[in-house]
Write a protein that binds this DNA or RNA. Structure first.
Length: 878
RNA sequence: GGGGAAUUAGCUCAGUUGGCUAGAGCGUUUGACUGGCAGUCAAAAGGUCAUCGGUUCGAUUCCGUUAUUCUCCA
């Protein structure tokens, strides 16, 4: 009996626990505070700061399983997922780490012990690779690792690999080092006899696969490409959980393991199909099973689908799933969300967020599916219109295919499919050309070039933040670098001590100055980058080695602080008014306002908004002092009832901010007012939806709240003055609108009646010009009215031409009506004729053949215009 | 952050060299048929053509502004 996936996961963790590793929870799959990364894409992400030397390690030995998401990159492309047996968007990475503790020997010994002795993988099916060295880097092959491997495995199963496979780098610059991979050959006996497994290692064979990568971090790569030795050596390993499970469960595909099968089976039954019967449908089911996992975990960690950034990636993944379901499995209604219960049952015990966020995740997926199905039907309609208006085309224009894709979100492969059904081709080259153009445009707009850090003082590694208490400090520059984007060029400066708060947790970064004697350098923003506080300025001080006074803009900070505290009060108020399902999904606090996104499933009523405002303003008047506790163990903080956020990464010690521990208590690193009275007052200025199940509130405090109220009252007073009502303004305004509406109708009706009456009267004045009945008149009316009169004389009449001139407010208008029979039989054209006539009034005109209007400003020309028409009618008789 | 589009009745949408008194389907209301429901037929109500400005004799239509939404790329 093979182990279940969850037993395998536990075995891994228990094994490393027995080797004195500290087991930590998975970091959120959505990355915050790192501009270079949207999602956690490897197990080491949450330790990046340690490797970079920005933060000391809390433990020397750590192991965990990490939720990861990959949609693009050298090893993966979203469009490939589902077609083979082993590519995924979301996967788990099992890993063990040493931070300056054990190195190659233990890492290798334990990896072998776990795989062979504990998990009992047949060692005849294992191969290992070792770094073979590289001349351009001046590195020899990794003989050390080779020596340790020789103890466990036959020498002919140890392969030397190139830089591409066996030298790991975090990025273009930064920590790196050689690595050793363990590969497993799970082919059948006969296949193994026919072809030697070692020739297939690292050759993209689906059954000879890398399962574990042991990275030995010992160098740092500089931006000039050279390597320097790191002061301490680290181990960073990653083992693909899904692959390991496949090997241990004796399957040939990750999708056949008990990680994916429950999802696939549920999907098959929803679709009324059998998995394994049709390869195209199987692909679709794999795609959907994989993508559901990715989307569900991302949403549970707080990432709502949206139209840019990380949210856009999630949207694309979900839409790909819907697309496959729609095209290959016949789903025309939302279906992906129905699989969530299976996933929750499967993974909920290890990843509790999927259970606690269940309702939100389900709702968001459902709505997103719905909106995409709408997009699809738009696209199909657009496509059919194109086919209709180009009946002769053999090839769908690439520009049109791109327009469908770019503007209407209609996937290119669906365009291909629809075209095929009609026996048409699609100009894919033309499509690609347009797509490339767009990519280049975007890339150009987003280019950022960061220079190397210039180290000024390497004594201190980490910045000391003193901004909770102080607004200025005596500081030295540790390091700085220049960053060039398309629009601006600026410097990033790191200080040893700083009062500047770096943007995080929704609170914006501080602004201020660096002072050195007479020199003042303006800091326009402060950001956090890999846990480093980075001050942004357009200039760099002349003497970077001097001591500076670092001083924040305190009046701005005060406003930020009160808004942040108000956010906490409002968060608690929302939970009290709406219920405890309210959870923060996003927050922005600056000096002008606060914005707060939270889970809630319906629009707030006016009463609810008023209740929240009253509650918050009440707490402001109570003038509650802020109680801030630092270095609180995270478990204790949660015991105290502090609100923690899903998808937020917390250390072992946290900062707890409370305003009356029975009212508001939150884990928060931000800056706060000393007491709630400083907030002054609080007003909600808008409430809206930003996604299914997520609402957004914007609010103002202090003087901004006063201004807001003043403005509202001024407007109200303005309306009162206008309608001269001291009583119920809403009622009187409503009445006014109703009245206006009724009057409008009445005027319209009266004008119509008047026009009809005029028309009837005029009809009696017809004269015969030759054989044609002709009416000509002049009236003091505007163009709209005389047109109406003419229109009324058309129906039921024959052999009639009406010519009316109108004078109104210094403008001349003409209208000419020719009955349908004359138009048809004598080929008359009122539009052409009136254009001729309008020349006399220095204007233009036109219309249809039977009714045309013209206008001009030459009052003296009207008679002449009418004469032209009259003469034309006479000429028709001859 | 950079492009492309959309906004017309309660809802889903038509509306081309600028010019019919701006339409359809569904929904709503009323009436007829039926013992009632469902249904069928007939009729009616319902529009600032998102907003503000420009061009024009005339703008739902062309140009620009603002707002909102969709969408692709990064």
């Amino acid at each position: 009996m093979a182990m279940t996936s969850s037993q395998i996961r536990n075995t891994f963790l228990e094994f490393f626990q027995s080797k004195h590793h500290h087991i930590v929870p998975s970091a959120p799959i959505v990355v915050k505070d790192d501009p270079t990364l949207m999602f956690t894409n490897a197990g080491m992400n949450q330790f990046k700061e340690v490797f970079l030397g920005n933060m000391p390690a809390k433990f020397n030995r750590i192991a965990d399983t990490q939720k990861c998401l990959r949609v693009s990159g050298k090893h993966n492309d979203l469009e490939e997922v589902g077609y083979d047996t082993y590519h995924h968007t979301m996967f788990e990475m099992l890993g063990n780490w040493s931070f300056g503790d054990y190195f190659k020997q233990e890492a290798i010994d334990w990896a072998w012990e776990l795989l062979v002795d504990v998990l009992r993988i047949d060692k005849d099916r294992l191969y290992v690779t070792v770094y073979g060295g590289d001349k351009s880097d001046g590195l020899e092959r990794d003989n050390e690792a080779y020596t340790y491997w020789k103890k466990h495995i036959a020498e002919d199963r140890i392969l030397f690999g190139r830089k591409k496979d066996n030298f790991w780098e975090m990025g273009d610059t930064g920590p790196c080092g050689p690595c050793s991979e363990i590969h497993a050959d799970i082919r059948s006996e006969s296949d193994r006899k026919a072809v030697d497994g070692k020739t297939l290692v690292n050759n993209d064979h689906p059954l000879v696969i890398e399962i574990w990568n042991l990275v030995f971090i010992e160098f740092n790569r500089l931006s000039n490409g050279s390597l320097t030795k790191l002061p301490a050596q680290h181990v960073d390993t990653g083992m693909g959980f899904e692959r390991l499970t496949m090997v241990l469960q004796g399957k040939k595909s990750n999708y056949d393991t008990d990680i994916f099968q429950p999802l696939i089976q549920e999907l098959a039954s929803l679709a009324g199909l059998t998995y394994g019967a049709d390869s195209q449908k199987d692909i679709a089911m794999r795609v959907i099973a994989d993508h559901l996992r990715a989307v569900a975990f991302a949403i549970a960690d707080g990432q709502i689908p949206s139209n840019n950034g990380a949210g856009y990636v999630i949207r694309r993944i979900l839409r790909r799933a819907v697309r496959y379901g729609y095209t290959f499995l016949g789903f025309e209604e939302p279906f992906v969300y129905k699989l969530l219960s299976v996933l929750s049952n499967q993974m909920g015990s290890n990843f509790t967020e999927i259970v606690s966020q269940y309702e939100l995740v389900s709702k968001v997926i459902f709505e997103e599916e719905n909106s995409f199905l709408r997009t699809l039907s738009h696209g199909i309609r657009k496509f059919e219109q194109n086919i209709k208006s180009n009946p002769d085309q053999k090839i769908i224009d690439g520009n049109f295919a791109f327009e469908l894709f770019d503007t209407y979100g209609f996937p290119i492969d669906l365009t291909k499919l629809l075209a095929k059904e009609k026996g048409l081709d699609v100009d894919l080259d033309g499509f690609q050309v347009k797509l490339e153009e767009q990519k280049n445009r975007s890339r150009k707009a987003a280019e950022v070039a960061a220079g190397d850090w210039v180290i000024v003082d390497n004594k201190s590694v980490k910045t000391e933040f003193v901004g909770y208490e102080a607004s200025e400090s005596i500081s030295k520059i540790i390091r700085y670098r220049q960053v060039v984007t398309k629009k601006i060029s600026y410097f990033e400066i790191v200080l040893d001590v700083t009062p500047f708060y770096a943007e995080s947790g929704g609170q914006v970064g501080d602004t201020g100055v660096l002072l050195d004697g007479g020199e003042s350098i303006e800091i326009f923003n402060t950001l956090k980058e890999n846990n480093l506080i980075v001050h942004l300025s357009e200039k760099i001080p002349q003497n970077v080695e001097n001591e500076f006074i670092a001083k924040i803009n305190t009046s701005r900070r005060t406003k930020i602080v009160t808004n942040h505290s108000a956010t906490h009060l409002m968060h608690a108020a929302l939970r009290s008014v709406l219920g405890t399902h309210v959870e923060q999904k996003g927050s922005l606090v600056d000096d002008e306002r606060l914005r707060f996104d939270f889970s809630h499933f319906s629009k707030l009523t006016a009463e609810e908004i008023r209740k929240v405002e009253r509650l918050v303003n009440g707490k402001i008047r109570e003038n509650i002092s802020a109680a801030i506790a630092t270095e609180v163990p995270v478990d204790k903080a949660k015991e105290m009832g502090a609100m923690a956020l899903f998808g937020e990464k917390y250390g072992d010690f946290v900062r707890v901010v409370s305003f009356d521990p029975t009212y508001s208590i939150e884990l928060c690193g931000g800056t706060h007012a000393e007491s709630t009275g400083q907030i002054g007052s609080f007003r909600i200025i808008s409430e809206s939806a930003i996604a299914a199940g997520v609402r957004r509130i914007e609010a103002v405090t202090g003087e901004f709240a006063d201004t807001f109220i003043d403005h509202q009252l001024d407007q109200l007073q303005g309306v009162r003055d206008l309608i001269k009502s001291a009583g119920d303004v809403v009622k009187s305004t409503h009445q006014l609108i109703e009245q206006n509406h009724a009057l409008q109708k009445q005027v319209e009706q009266l004008l119509n009646a008047k026009a009809l009456e005029k028309a009837n009267a005029l009809l009696k004045t017809d004269i015969l010009l030759g054989s044609i009945r002709f009416i000509e008149t002049v009236m003091e009316e505007d163009g709209e009215f005389i047109k109406n009169v003419c229109g009324n004389m058309r129906s039921g009449q024959s052999n009639l031409i009406v010519s009316i001139g109108g004078k109104f407010e210094g403008k001349i208008s003409l209208c000419l009506m020719i009955t349908d029979d004359l138009v048809n039989l004598k080929n008359m054209d009122a539009s052409k004729l009136i254009r001729e006539a309008a020349k006399a009034i220095l204007g233009g005109g036109g219309g249809q053949k039977h009714l045309a209007t013209a206008g001009g400003k030459n009052l003296d020309g009207m008679d002449q215009s009418l004469e032209i028409i009259r003469k034309f009618v006479i000429s028709c008789n001859s």
